[in-house]
């Protein structure tokens, strides 16, 4: 391997790693606040890319219908769960957030889509459609079992992933597509051709990471979320509503997933089931970061991206095998040095 190839692989690794970093940060956030290992995080990524692709073609994305379906389910599950203690406030909230919002977005997308408003509008619309799915999914699947063990939550998480992937097939169909690059410019840096797309990916990821650092370090809401993740019972005792915190964490996760989807769309062909692998690789990074540390997670994500680039150069057939085998020694190491992962049922 000569220097040029190395640099090329490095660039490839950094781009992939940046996307994994965003997804992995979402996983760490959600795990910290709710103890859910969010397997369906990848679906947010894939569905966003498919939504942008549909909008680029001037089609109304089926995402709006999916959002309406999830809203309906969330409303039903909320009504069943709070059958005995329904308040007017809760009813209004269900009507507004689970029913009115999806319907409004559905009408909006159907009106806007044929107008082909351009890339920025497409991206914003896609993110707006995906983000509310997070809290809806939390209320449908996880809120009723929020106090169960990590294991039960993990199984439920797989269940949600299955259902969402199947719904993705129903709504988006089996074909994969790509989206237009965020920037078609490129420039030479020595031997290396740096594409505008890769600059955009790194810049957006960097910006979001900084915003997140500010959010968690400086704002009351961010600190409340951190309190939930370090000590749930303590957080409840000082008056932080952990259920609401879970919804916020899921909303942020969906938002991060949506942004990752925007970034990933131009890089690869995305189909309804592409999210799973992206999510899992990010997950490898999240584990490397111990599901706790954000900076470590970002570093690990870059590492996973680079390892993947190297593996695909040396042994492209066994790329996935190698990436996932990588996690086993890390898990073993963490089991020995961080045995507090064990938790009483």
């Amino acid at each position: 391997m000569d220097g040029t190839i190395f640099l090329f692989l490095l660039q490839d690794g950094v781009i992939n790693g940046a996307v994994y970093a965003l997804v992995a940060i979402a996983l760490v956030l959600v795990f910290g606040v709710t103890r859910v290992i969010l397997v369906p995080q990848g679906e947010f990524v894939a569905f966003t890319a498919l939504t942008v692709a549909a909008l680029e073609n001037g089609n109304a994305p089926p995402t709006a219908w999916l959002l309406l379906a999830l809203g309906g389910l969330a409303a039903i599950s909320e009504l069943v769960r709070h059958f005995r203690d329904l308040t007017v406030r809760r009813l209004v909230r269900i009507a507004l957030f689970d029913l009115a919002l999806p319907v409004a977005l559905l009408l909006l997308t159907r009106a806007l889509a044929p107008m082909k408003l351009g890339q920025v509008a497409n991206i914003l619309l896609a993110i707006t459609l995906i983000t509310p799915m997070g809290p809806m999914i939390y209320r449908i699947a996880f809120a009723p079992i929020a106090h169960s063990s990590v294991l039960v939550l993990l199984m439920a998480s797989f269940g949600v992933h299955f259902s969402l992937m199947g719904l993705g097939l129903v709504f988006f169909g089996p074909e994969g597509t790509g989206t237009a690059p965020l920037s078609s410019q490129s420039f030479a840096l020595g031997d290396l051709v740096v594409t505008g797309q890769s600059v955009a990916v790194v810049a957006v990821t960097g910006l979001l990471l900084v915003l997140f650092a500010i959010f968690f370090g400086r704002t009351l809401l961010g600190k409340a979320l951190r309190a939930c993740s370090s000590n749930r019972i303590g957080a409840r005792l000082v008056g932080i509503p952990t259920g609401a915190a879970g919804q916020i964490a899921f909303a942020l996760a969906a938002l991060l997933g949506a942004v990752s989807g925007v970034l990933v769309g131009p890089l690869m062909t995305v189909a309804y089931d592409s999210g799973f692998l992206i999510g899992l690789k990010a997950f490898v990074a999240a584990i490397l970061g111990g599901l706790v540390s954000y900076p470590l997670t970002v570093l690990a994500a870059l590492g996973v991206g680079f390892a993947e680039a190297l593996f695909s150069f040396w042994a492209s057939n066994f790329k996935e095998v190698l990436v996932f085998t990588l996690i086993i020694p890390v898990l073993a190491w963490r089991s020995v040095y961080a045995p507090h992962a064990e938790e009483a049922e």
Partner: peptide
Amino acid sequence: AVTVRLSGHYLPLGTIAWGIAFFYLFGN
């Protein structure tokens, strides 16, 4: 020998990892 030594939720995560790795191994 490696898997049963993983503690807590690391154990199921480990099974996911080698579960996927073997799938790709069989396929390649």
